[in-house]
Simulated scan of single mutants.
Amino acid sequence: MRSATAPFHLLLVEDEHADAELFTELIGEISRDIQIHHVLNGQEALEFVTRQGRYVQAPFTNLIVLDLNMPVMNGHEFLKRAKREDRARSIPVLVLSTSDHPRDITRAYHEYASSYVVKPGSFAEYRDLLTVIEGYWRGAVKLPTVEQISAAQSSAARSNG
């Protein structure tokens, strides 16, 4: 079980700087112990969660908040690739997108997104939404610890080897 004082590491994958700043500001108002790590596209996110390149020292990520429409590698491609990686497979991914198109929603779930939320139009609605998200992912949901995930990966590697 995660300590009440241990930080909760959230990876925000968002190419729009203004959206990332707003998200970070609102989450900071809701909870002080959420550590937000921001990357600009799916390629950087994949490197972060698999600890490659400049992210070799990245902390274990408790939750990924993912935009879909980004340059370099979009959110859909990130989901497809991340869910094939042992280090990323168990990390829940919340898609936070402006798109409410049924095709995007269905595709994200097909690619193993944990949830899909449409970005609200007003500041107050956005703050309320992030309060609900924080309460759900940090209160209602039981997430595995890094130790539990490592043990499961080691066990799988031994049985495959």
Score class of each variant (00 low, 15 high):
residue 83 K to W: 02
residue 79 L to R: 01
residue 94 L to K: 12
residue 84 R to N: 11
residue 91 I to F: 09
residue 67 D to A: 05
residue 74 N to H: 05
residue 50 T to Q: 07
residue 76 H to I: 06
residue 86 D to L: 09
residue 60 F to Y: 15
residue 58 A to D: 11
residue 71 P to S: 04
residue 95 V to E: 04
residue 92 P to K: 06
residue 56 V to W: 14
residue 56 V to G: 15
residue 71 P to T: 05
residue 92 P to C: 08
residue 51 R to H: 15
residue 81 R to A: 02
residue 97 S to T: 09
residue 73 M to N: 01
residue 98 T to N: 11
residue 80 K to C: 09
residue 89 R to I: 13
residue 64 I to Q: 06
residue 82 A to Y: 00
residue 84 R to Y: 06
residue 55 Y to K: 10
residue 83 K to Q: 06
residue 96 L to E: 01
residue 92 P to R: 05
residue 96 L to G: 04
residue 67 D to F: 06
residue 56 V to A: 14
residue 85 E to W: 01
residue 64 I to D: 04
residue 85 E to S: 12
residue 64 I to A: 11
residue 70 M to Y: 03
residue 68 L to E: 05
residue 97 S to L: 07
residue 84 R to K: 13
residue 60 F to G: 10
residue 84 R to C: 13
residue 92 P to H: 05
residue 58 A to H: 14
residue 51 R to Q: 14
residue 57 Q to D: 15
residue 83 K to D: 04
residue 74 N to M: 03
residue 56 V to K: 15
residue 99 S to P: 04
residue 93 V to M: 09
residue 57 Q to W: 14
residue 63 L to Q: 12
residue 68 L to A: 10
residue 86 D to M: 09
residue 88 A to F: 04
residue 59 P to K: 13
residue 66 L to H: 11
residue 49 V to F: 11
residue 75 G to F: 00
residue 90 S to Y: 11
residue 68 L to Y: 10
residue 97 S to D: 08
residue 51 R to Y: 12
residue 56 V to C: 14
residue 65 V to A: 04
residue 58 A to W: 14
residue 84 R to G: 13
residue 91 I to L: 06
residue 98 T to H: 06
residue 65 V to K: 01
residue 81 R to V: 01
residue 61 T to P: 05
residue 92 P to W: 03
residue 70 M to I: 10
residue 76 H to P: 06
residue 80 K to T: 07
residue 83 K to G: 07
residue 75 G to C: 02
residue 69 N to R: 11
residue 76 H to T: 03
residue 58 A to N: 11
residue 49 V to R: 09
residue 96 L to V: 05
residue 94 L to F: 09
residue 99 S to E: 04
residue 86 D to C: 08
residue 65 V to M: 02
residue 58 A to S: 13
residue 82 A to G: 05
residue 77 E to Q: 07
residue 97 S to Q: 05
residue 51 R to M: 14
residue 53 G to W: 13
residue 93 V to Y: 12
residue 65 V to F: 01
residue 56 V to L: 14
residue 74 N to E: 03
residue 65 V to E: 00
residue 75 G to A: 02
residue 89 R to N: 15
residue 78 F to C: 00
residue 74 N to S: 04
residue 59 P to L: 10
residue 70 M to L: 06
residue 72 V to Q: 00
residue 96 L to H: 03
residue 73 M to W: 01
residue 99 S to C: 05
residue 82 A to C: 03
residue 65 V to G: 01
residue 64 I to L: 08
residue 71 P to F: 07
residue 75 G to I: 00
residue 82 A to K: 00
residue 75 G to K: 00
residue 55 Y to N: 14
residue 80 K to D: 06
residue 60 F to A: 12
residue 94 L to N: 04
residue 52 Q to K: 15
residue 89 R to H: 11
residue 96 L to D: 02
residue 92 P to M: 03
residue 100 D to S: 13
residue 91 I to Q: 05
residue 95 V to F: 09
residue 56 V to N: 13
residue 86 D to Q: 09
residue 61 T to A: 09
residue 71 P to H: 04
residue 50 T to A: 12
residue 88 A to I: 01
residue 94 L to Q: 04
residue 72 V to R: 00
residue 86 D to N: 08
residue 84 R to T: 13
residue 89 R to F: 14
residue 78 F to K: 00
residue 65 V to R: 01
residue 85 E to T: 02
residue 57 Q to N: 15
residue 66 L to Q: 10
residue 50 T to M: 12
residue 72 V to A: 00
residue 62 N to S: 10
residue 95 V to S: 09
residue 75 G to P: 02
residue 92 P to D: 03
residue 66 L to A: 10
residue 94 L to W: 08
residue 74 N to I: 07
residue 90 S to R: 05
residue 51 R to I: 13
